[in-house]
Amino acid sequence: MDWDVIISYLPLYKRAMILTLKIGWMGILFSVLIGFLCAVIRHYRVPVLRGLAGFYIELFRNTPLLVQLFFLYFALPRVGIPMDAEVCGVLGLSLLGGAYMAEAFRSGIEAVDSVQMESALSLGMTRWQAVIHVILPQAISISVPAFVANIIFLLKETSVFSAISLMDLMFTAKDLIGLYYRTVECLSLLVAFYLIILLPVSVIGSLVERRMRYAGFGD
């Protein structure tokens, strides 16, 4: 283990971490939006859109991210839709994450007892008010653990971005090994940097989980 080598590689890893975080968090943000929308559409059985959302979720949950990225990056330009590698990365991650988030939110919504809706309606709330003020807050609280697990999963999935030439952490490590053959240093840094990204997420995630455990009172 050569510490000078490690120090000289740090700026490159830092740059890669920033790229990983940038694409990762943008992807996560969009996947939350997509997932939330799909879950609501599916649960409240919005006509037409419901079928589309179901098709989308099954398509992206049952194909690997690597395949999706290859398709976006290498196949789409051939039919006239060229895309930047970064755009492909964000899009791929958002679509994959959206499908997983949709399932997480849907299970949350379904876990809210139907008596809650009935009670809200009998108190004179409109259906819409009941969904916004009674159902969704509880549903979100219930889906937090699955939601945090998905965030960690998505951040880890960024390691396949090297396939479309994005200089993320994984690719930086592989590239440096190819250039200078310092395998042990490069791979140790790789592990360390992924932990720097992911440990805080999992610690903050479990804190949030604890704070938000307010659904389903009366148990």
């Binding site: 290498f74 090297s162 690719f171 190819g178 250039l179």
Partner: peptide, 29 residues
């Protein structure tokens, strides 16, 4: 990545922007 072309350009032409791929197939496509 890992080819002599990469090493050569990194060393002698550090200002040229490189788009790196890890397989021949990906680079070709």
């Amino acid at each position: 990545t890992g080819t002599t072309a990469e090493t050569f350009l990194v060393k002698n032409y550090p200002d040229i922007q490189l788009q790196k791929f890890d397989t021949y197939a990906a680079a070709k496509s």
